[in-house]
Simulated scan of single mutants.
Amino acid sequence: MKVSTVTAPGTTELLDVEQPQPGPADILVRMRACGICGSDALYISIGGVPPRQGCTPLGHEPAGEVAHVGAEVNGVSVGDHVVINPMAAPSGIIGNGGATGALADYLLIENAVRGLSFEVIPDHIPWEVAALNEPMAVARHGANRCNPKPGDKVVVFGAGPVGLGATLAFKSLGAGHVVVVDILARRLDKALQIGADAVVNSTEENVVERLIELHGEGEAMWPGKAGTDIYLDAAGAPAVVNTALAAAKRHATLGVVGVHKEQVPIDFVNIMSNEITVTGSMGYPDEIFEVTKDLVENWEKYALIVSHTMPFDKVGDALELAATPGVADKVVITFP
């Protein structure tokens, strides 16, 4: 079979490898779709993930069809459609420095346990939507880390896949009003389509003033703060942190799920005096299959997050497309 592999800095190849042989505790999954993540571009640029630099299999957003079920595995049958937890693999995180990657014809799930390493989904869910399960779990964890309460007023910065997923998560968790901020009009249009209550183009509007219009004024040590309860940075830009803290009222929460590539100076006097909570978010300790139910129930909305689907034999072109800023939202590889 073939697997997309980082073989040198800036280089990926479709390598021929032996198809894995499942044991009695394993399942073998025929890949049907796998999303491309922003981290894939990072792994390619640095030549792979230690200790597998020079030979790092890619792909950690998998969905597929069960091709073989080991005798000791329960709750799944050949032909079932499944989504997979990349972090549960005993040989290392799938597509993130582990021994296997999901941008491959087949994926071996070792020590397979339903609800821990994989979950079965209905057959009517499109494969490209099923492949969103992993990044939507990242978004769900980001929302959960902010501890939203029913009725909370929320703003999500960044209308990429994780930001849109977080918007859906906040709505699912009972947020009363969700605003999405971005610099691209087409992404803001998509945010409205999936259910955002309002959007702000930060290149055209003053974000703080607009939030005050939408959420009212909030109590704070100094005037001019918005009534927003939760700010989620899904963009990873210093301007987002600065804007959120400039707007934040007393007891507001700032969550950070976007990856920052440079340090951001923070005014701690503001954080102290207004008792602002700042919380980070990484991965999905508990959300990988928590999000699956919502994905299945609202798959038509989640489907809007996918901007491009490309066949596996064009995976090199797809990786390049996904790494080009502002051109694509979520790129998903599909398999014959």
Rank of each mutant, 00 (worst) to 15 (best):
T228W: 00
G59K: 06
E204G: 11
G151D: 01
L192D: 00
L304C: 09
S307D: 05
I212Q: 06
A323K: 14
H68D: 13
V69C: 08
N96M: 11
G160Y: 15
V178M: 12
I84T: 09
W299D: 02
E205Y: 11
A104Y: 01
A234E: 13
L232R: 06
I84A: 06
E287L: 08
R30V: 09
A99G: 00
T5W: 13
E65R: 15
S77Q: 12
I44V: 12
R186H: 15
D40S: 12
A185P: 03
D229H: 09
G115Q: 10
K261I: 00
M136I: 10
S172R: 13
V331M: 09
P285G: 04
Y43W: 12
F335V: 08
L295S: 00
A63V: 06
N133C: 10
V73M: 12
A322Q: 15
T324K: 14
L15W: 09
Q21A: 14
S39H: 07
A226R: 08
D197R: 13
L164R: 04
E217V: 06
S91F: 13
P122E: 01
G258V: 07
A169W: 01
V82E: 01
K301A: 05
E13A: 13
D80N: 15
C55P: 04
I94Y: 14
M87P: 07
M31N: 09
V306C: 03
L14K: 10
L107D: 02
G283Y: 12
P22T: 02
C55G: 04
I36D: 03
G98I: 12
G160W: 11
S91Y: 10
G218I: 05
D294F: 10
A102M: 15
R32K: 07
K171G: 00
L321S: 06
S4W: 11
T279L: 07
D26S: 04
H251M: 15
T5G: 10
K171S: 02
G236C: 02
T5H: 07
V29D: 02
D16K: 14
Q263V: 10
A166E: 03
V291G: 00
M31W: 11
A196T: 11
G101I: 14
V180P: 04
H60N: 14
P285N: 09
I305K: 06
N270V: 15
A41E: 00
I121D: 00
K153Y: 04
V129I: 14
D182E: 13
A322C: 02
N270A: 14
T100A: 08
F157H: 06
A102E: 15
A102P: 08
V3H: 14
V3Y: 02
F157W: 11
D182Q: 13
H251P: 00
P9S: 00
K330M: 10
A139I: 01
G23S: 08
V120T: 10
V332C: 10
